Amino acid sequence: MSRRFIVAAAQYPIEEIASIDAYEAKVARWIGEAAAHGAKLAVFPEYGIMELAAAFPHAAGDLALSLGVLGPLVDEVDALHQALARRHDMHILASSAPVQGGDGRYRNVARLFTPQGTVGRQEKLVMTRFERDSWDIAAGSPIRVFRTKLGLIGVSICYDVEFPLIARAQAEAGAELILCPSATDTLKGYWRVRIGAQARALENQCYVVHAPTVGDAPWSPAMDTNRGAAGLYGPPDAGFPDDGVVAVGDLDQATWLFAEVDLDKVTAVRADGAVLNFRHWSEQGGADAVPPAGPVAEIVDLT
């Protein structure tokens, strides 16, 4: 059975959204376009939902207030994504959102919706300086891998993909595809995430999908500037491009990037590549310093 499918990675523009209805119409339009191009997986960026804060002028310019007005809307937004995933027979990684936990703290949560109606949630694990110092977003847990009809999928949110042990735990749990939604306000930030994504693809001999925010939103202290380009990356080895770049978008343009994923290529390169990075991980000095060999990911069945 073929394990090939089209992935759509968003270069998603942060805009001044007037209402929840306008936001939902925008999301539906974007997902409809991805479906029209045959995508079976659509990946939105980190914090894309923050554009909805513009619908609340008293809160849009205040970090704490913006969290408070958006939090109650996440369930409605999730219901929309769940319905669209069913309607279009598509897996959808929604834009990550700040979600308040039982302890009163907000965490950055990505949600993966399947056509079957199931939902997987991955919290961001390592907070950037902005999230820690200015926004007071708390670190989340645990590391997860989602078993889907498409295959085993991990999610490493933005800064998380810059740390090798997170993706490694996902790969050891079976992930052949890692999704990296991001939001970066400089080209340096974009390249840190992109280089991290390409490094994780090399180390784990897998695909990594990068989906960033783009555009300017001067009214938002959280999302005022957004730079980046979507990409699909793999290991520079047999069956993949020489540089590992399967596809990459045009910088800062609002659009989808469409590309084909073939998970059988991951199986093949892990078994008989020119090098065997995935298999040889434990041979690097200190790899087993933290028992058993670093963090462990839990598998969540979404089939």
Rank of each mutant, 00 (worst) to 15 (best):
S2N: 14
F5H: 01
A8E: 06
A9N: 07
A9D: 06
E15L: 12
E16V: 00
E16L: 07
I17A: 02
A18D: 10
A18R: 13
S19A: 08
I20M: 09
D21N: 10
A22N: 10
K26R: 14
R29S: 15
G32N: 03
E33D: 14
A34N: 01
A35G: 03
A36M: 09
G38A: 07
G38F: 11
A39M: 06
K40L: 11
E46I: 02
I49H: 04
M50W: 09
L52S: 05
L52F: 03
L52I: 00
L52D: 05
A53S: 13
D62V: 05
L63F: 13
L63V: 15
A64Y: 09
S66Y: 04
P72L: 12
D75L: 04
A79L: 12
A79P: 03
Q82R: 15
Q82W: 04
R86Y: 08
R87Q: 15
M90T: 01
H91R: 02
L93E: 09
L93A: 09
V109Q: 13
F113A: 03
Q116F: 00
T118R: 14
L125H: 07
L125I: 15
F130R: 12
E131Y: 01
D133L: 13
W135C: 13
I137W: 02
S141E: 12
S141A: 14
P142Q: 06
P142N: 05
P142E: 07
P142V: 05
V145H: 01
L152H: 06
I153L: 11
C158M: 02
Y159R: 11
Y159K: 10
V161F: 06
F163W: 08
F163Q: 14
P164F: 10
P164G: 05
L165K: 10
I166V: 15
I166N: 10
A167N: 06
E172R: 15
G174P: 04
E176L: 01
I178Y: 04
I178F: 00
G189T: 06
W191E: 12
R194T: 00
A197L: 08
N204Q: 12
Q205P: 00
Q205L: 02
C206S: 10
Y207M: 05
V208C: 06
H210Y: 11
P212I: 09
G215M: 01
A217Y: 07
S220G: 05
P221A: 03
P221K: 03
M223L: 15
M223C: 12
M223W: 07
N226G: 05
A230K: 08
G231N: 04
G234P: 04
G234F: 05
D237F: 08
A238E: 14
G239M: 09
V245I: 15
A247C: 05
G249K: 03
D250K: 11
D250C: 05
L251Y: 10
A254Y: 00
T255N: 10
E260M: 08
K265N: 09
T267K: 14
R270P: 03
A271Y: 04
A271N: 08
A271W: 00
F278D: 02
R279L: 13
H280I: 05
A287R: 08
A289I: 09
A289V: 09
V290N: 09
P292N: 07
P295Q: 01
P295F: 00
V296A: 12
D301I: 04
L302V: 06
